[in-house]
Design a binder for these strands. Structure first.
Lengths: 182, 182
DNA sequence: GTCTATAGAATGATAGAC
DNA sequence: GTCTATCATTCTATAGAC
């Protein structure tokens, strides 16, 4: 999706505010104030508040999609999985603020579950991350993986921790959970 | 804190709704409707919406406090830590719905950080969970622990997973993270 | 403990001028 | 692309009767 400069300004402001207050805690007035325009100007870029949230989610999942495609293209399965996990951790550390929103905001969770293309993508992602593992235990592992990543990256305890240390500890722990060598 | 029956009805309804919509996404009207009274009746029990959120948080942290005191009373440190982790996992599995609210709702996160007694308690809890570990790496481990627990328990992927399996996998993974035998 | 009624502010959203 | 002005609705919160 090609977006205008004005649209990108809205999305950036919305991301900031939503990361801090959640979707329900962020109003269009707050977004408008942050950019320095009126509500009407924001509504000219996106028809509804939901459209902003969808555009935001699409943009963030886009990074993950690139990583997923690279991993699926890798002929060696284990290598592909290793690649994906590494990239997911890197992305999560890089874009810390968005992680909590995507994983835990009740409005976004609802949206991911109801909006068809999102659900398909999430399934594909978890399948690739788990490799040959299947069944109930695999699902618990997948949930734990996503938990380790998201929380390790957003928790107040680690707010001032060096990116490199965070990345390393995360990767080590993830490898232990999914039993990859490392 | 001793609560009347009417107050408990408010807290139970609020917990349900907040687990589903978040704090900002839950209005006093929704709470009143769920109980079958008017807003004014709810306001008679709690002066503000924030007071409801605080009372809710206190009630849930109360369970953890009992577990923490039992662990601190244990003369053998490793045994105390083992006891605490086990109890925390049990509680999280039992009370799945509240976990996501306590850990990830932006309003509650703010409150836990600003409300003095809450911050003190959280520090005490993490210290006990980590045992002799200290420094940056310990903080990353603490964050990952809380992530594994909370997400493993609330993730859509595990919504229909048996409590016993969830508890076991969680405990095994946590032991690997904090390097406890088991 | 619950009600009706209301105040006052904020919400999402739209119409129409520039 | 942005503005002013406005609408209907919802929000938190309070006053006062039963």
């Amino acid at each position: 999706m090609r977006r205008s400069a004005a649209q990108l300004r809205v999305l950036d402001a919305a991301l900031d505010l939503i990361a801090e207050h959640g979707v329900s805690g962020t109003s269009l007035q707050m977004i408008a104030d942050r950019i320095g325009v009126t509500k009407a100007a924001v509504y000219h870029q996106f028809k509804t508040k939901e459209a902003i949230v969808i555009a935001l989610t699409e943009r963030e999942l886009g990074w993950l999609e690139e990583a997923l495609e690279a991993a699926e293209a890798e002929p060696n399965h284990t290598a592909g999985r290793e690649l994906l996990l590494t990239r997911v951790v890197e992305l999560a550390v890089e874009r810390r603020r968005m992680v909590s929103v995507l994983q835990f905001d009740p409005v976004i969770i609802r949206m991911l579950a109801q909006h068809e293309p999102f659900g398909v993508f999430i399934d594909r992602l978890y399948t690739a991350m788990l490799g040959e593992e299947t069944g109930d235990r695999a699902r618990v592992h997948a949930a734990m993986l996503s938990g380790v990543i998201s929380v390790a990256v957003m928790h107040p305890l680690v707010a001032d921790i060096d990116d490199a240390l965070l990345r390393n500890e995360l990767l080590r722990t993830m490898r232990r959970i999914v039993a990859l060598p490392g």
